[in-house]
């Protein structure tokens, strides 16, 4: 995959380049601010952008705003945003804008779990949705009402769904059978009033329901 990296901390930027190349990706550009990011994407047309939320010159949410601009200009461009701290409104805005396809929002520290990070990158590039478990954990703490109906096990499963995992991956993580996972997921959908639809996006919808309810 062809990747553009935007990260202002040199140490981390070089580390990310090394990591992604180690997993067989090509880093076509690595930049240190939002303006250069936009320019690099225009020039390189990458498969995915990995960007820090907070970048120069303002050090607030330049990366996020650049990501919005890029997604508006290039629909379908996959973006994985890295954040220093958990902020649900970022995730809600990201997912709300494009139905969450090809969007990732992870805490920076997840980079340390190199294999999982590389997996997440691929899932996002393939149009999947990845939300940091910490965001999901906070949202679960927040939107209690509909979630009170879920059992603790179902909550665990929902958190893993939000990470973009497949049924098989969830089954391995929880040491249960695939069939058990499928049963839990069906139960979650039922309890959250998500009707069966043709396009099977209910996994994303399950997570989105909370994010959007929160950003009212």
């Amino acid at each position: 995959m062809r990747v553009v990296i935007a990260e202002d901390a040199v140490l981390l930027r070089e580390g990310l380049v090394g990591l992604l190349e180690r997993f067989g990706h090509t880093v076509v550009a690595s930049v240190g601010d939002a303006a250069s990011l936009v320019a690099a994407v225009e020039e390189q047309r990458p498969d995915i952008v990995v960007a820090d939320v907070r970048m120069p010159p303002g050090f607030t949410d330049e990366g996020l705003r650049a990501a919005f601009a890029l997604r508006a200009a290039h629909p379908g461009l996959a973006v994985l945003l890295l954040s220093q701290y958990v902020e649900q409104t970022y995730a809600a805005e990201l997912l709300g804008s494009a139905g969450g396809a090809g969007i990732g929002y992870l805490l920076k520290e997840r980079i340390g779990d190199v294999r999982e990070f590389a997996d997440a990158l691929v899932r996002v590039a393939e149009g999947g949705t990845v939300i940091d478990p910490e965001v999901v954990r906070q949202l679960l703490g927040w939107r209690r009402d509909p979630l009170r109906r879920l059992t603790p096990r179902e909550l665990e499963v929902l958190a893993l769904i939000a990470e973009g995992r497949s049924n098989g991956s969830i089954a391995r993580a929880l040491f249960v059978s695939d069939a058990a996972v499928a049963k839990h997921i069906a139960s979650i959908f039922a309890k959250l009033d998500l009707p069966p639809t043709a396009d099977g996006h209910r996994r994303v919808l399950a997570v989105l329901a909370y994010l959007q309810a929160e950003s009212r």
């Binding site: 901390a9 140490l11 981390l12 580390g15 990310l16 090394g18 990591l19 180690r22 907070r54 050090f59 220093q84 701290y85 920076k108 520290e109 980079i111 340390g112 779990d113 190199v114 294999r115």
Partner: peptide, 21 residues
């Protein structure tokens, strides 16, 4: 703390993760 210490720790964690591979 965010731009200094956290970045260094993330870089450290990443190196350790890569070394484990």
């Amino acid at each position: 703390l965010h731009d200094g210490t956290q970045q260094r720790l993330v870089a450290l964690s990443m190196r350790l993760g890569l070394a484990r591979l």
